[in-house]
């Protein structure tokens, strides 16, 4: 008999996020509730939570980049990014992000996933450039428009990463697919798998690229 009660933990996460409680609080509460409903004693749940947290510290390492980004911002990095884009004729937010999308996909496909990212490139470079380009197209940006442009920068980074990285042979997800299928006696090479990431990658470029061109149209029209 399967114990369905731990699924309540998932419901708790969904409700907590929807009601916009502090996400750390939501996640920790859901974890403890799920564990208890799964018949784990409290200390075991606490230990599992702590163990998981400690083992996954590498996820948080990326933030040691902040002092460098902060220092460069102090000396005018964002202003520089804006000046650079303002000087390029024909530069629009959409076109800039299409170039970034292509770059991000190609780099990820070569296995260079950490070369770009939200902290490394989006906040210090891409977002201020896109805002500057949008201001050229649109005049001064209303808050809502500037939010949209910034959010689109982050979205473009994610789309480029997700639909590029699987073309690389030695990426974790390809190895996971290979391993999972191998446990069912289906033997595949990473190459056979990564080839099938290419059609989706190409479609992703056109789908998201089209949305970026639409963004340009909206920016130009509202002028």
């Amino acid at each position: 008999m399967i114990n369905y009660w731990p699924l309540l933990g998932i419901a708790l996460v969904v409700v907590g996020f929807a009601l916009r409680f502090n996400p750390l609080l939501v996640v920790a509460t859901a974890g403890i509730v799920t564990g208890l409903l799964g018949h784990m004693p409290f200390l075991k749940v606490l230990g599992t939570l702590g163990h998981g947290f400690n083992e996954n510290r590498y996820v948080t390492i990326i933030w040691m980049i902040l002092p460098v980004v902060g220092l460069l911002e102090r000396y005018g990095l964002q202003e520089r990014a804006r000046t650079l884009i303002a000087g390029i004729r024909g530069a629009t937010a959409g076109r800039l992000l299409i170039v970034y999308l292509a770059l991000r996909q190609v780099l990820s496909a070569l296995g260079l996933t950490t070369v770009a990212g939200h902290a490394q490139t989006v906040r210090p470079l891409v977002a201020p450039m896109a805002i500057a380009a949008a201001e050229k197209q649109h005049g001064e940006l209303e808050e809502e428009t500037s939010e949209r442009v910034k959010a689109m920068c982050a979205a473009t980074d994610n789309v480029g990463l997700f639909f590029g990285e699987d073309i690389f042979l030695a990426i974790a997800s390809i190895l996971l697919i290979q391993g999972s299928l191998a446990s069912f006696g289906i033997q595949l090479t990473p190459f056979q798998l990564s080839v099938w990431a290419i059609p989706t990658a190409i479609c992703a470029f056109f789908v998201h690229g089209a949305r970026l061109l639409l963004l340009d149209r909206k920016l130009a029209r509202a002028r």
Binding site: I2, N3, P6, L7, G9, I10, V13, L24, V27, A28, A30, G31, T34, G35, L37, G38, M40, V45, T48, L49, G50, H51, G52, F53, E55, N56, R57, V59, T60
Partner: peptide
């Protein structure tokens, strides 16, 4: 990181 540890609990509880 917190979500990663939630994943560990989800796995332990057989989700």
């Amino acid at each position: 990181q917190m979500l990663a540890s939630l994943g560990v609990i989800f796995a332990a509880a057989g989700i």
